[in-house]
Design a protein around this nucleic acid. Structure first.
Lengths: 154, 154
DNA sequence: TATTGTTATACTCTATAACTATA
DNA sequence: TATAGTTATAGAGTATAACAATA
């Protein structure tokens, strides 16, 4: 041990997280950050952020949906969703079509190009999700989802 | 049903999350946001953010700790931690004392005022944590922590 | 009056480069 | 040369107020 290291060992106490490490909230946060980082990396080849993918998935699942509905479902503020859709539309991935009977809103849908990109992105998403599921071990996914939903409803 | 509502029902399909709702990552995110929102509200009376509390807890648990060590433990970039500590110090909650043998760094500690505030904040934190634990139902906390730690290590 | 989408803006969190003073 | 703390700044992500067009 060098004298500097020795002095360091004398001076610095062994650090502790002060109980934080046995807190669900703290570990929940670490897990969520890790999952989003991993998913973001997986979506990199498609130039999509996590939010972009979620918006595309919702539109694909329910074509004709209006912006307001998507924002409500994904908890994205309307002004922020405008920007996201502008970008996706500029890339030719989604369309904003007129809604018969309501000229205020748009019917959103995925373009063929969007669908093609989504196929790859969904495969990457699935691979990522499998990694997360492996971390669950023998804890059933449904059990985990139920608990997380209950926490989300706090 | 009004004619507007009827037209709405005809036009808008029943929306779906497109499989997102059965994804651990998505629900994990909802849970984490809910937990942090609840904790932030619980800490409001003490004028502390979640990060402030975690920093105070770590310093209290290990007095004499240096800024770098705290940043590493809590995953806070050093430049950002400077601001946080500046604020806590300006409020008289923490102290930056000289470290014998290394004039580059500071030994951090909680002041009596900080300790007094922390007592209340810790009680609020504990009450919040009990709410989270209730949402776990019969799933043991240790089991949950283990799974979340494994996910965090993805 | 209320609602959809929009614009502009602000606030928080997080991240990076470069500096200083020490080691 | 490397490290601790700092400064300045930039980039996400998120939030609110106010507007135009339409209901």
């Amino acid at each position: 041990m060098t004298s500097a290291a020795k002095r360091k060992a004398e001076t610095e106490p062994t650090p502790s997280l002060g109980g934080l490490e046995t807190t669900v909230g703290f570990v929940l946060r670490l897990a969520q950050v890790a999952v989003f980082k991993d998913l973001l990396a997986a979506l990199k080849p498609f130039d999509l952020r996590v939010t972009d993918l979620s918006v595309l998935l919702v539109i694909e699942a329910t074509p004709g949906l209006q912006q307001r509905a998507i924002g409500d479902m994904l908890r994205i503020q309307r002004p922020n969703l405008v920007i996201i859709l502008d970008q996706l539309q500029a890339r030719g991935l989604v369309r904003r079509d007129p809604v018969p009977g309501d000229r205020r809103s748009y019917a959103l849908s995925i373009t063929p190009e969007g669908a093609a990109l989504l196929r790859g992105a969904k495969a990457a998403h699935a691979a990522h999700d499998r990694k997360v599921l492996e971390a669950l071990g023998d804890l059933e996914k449904e059990r985990m989802l139920t608990v997380l939903e209950r926490i989300a409803a706090i």
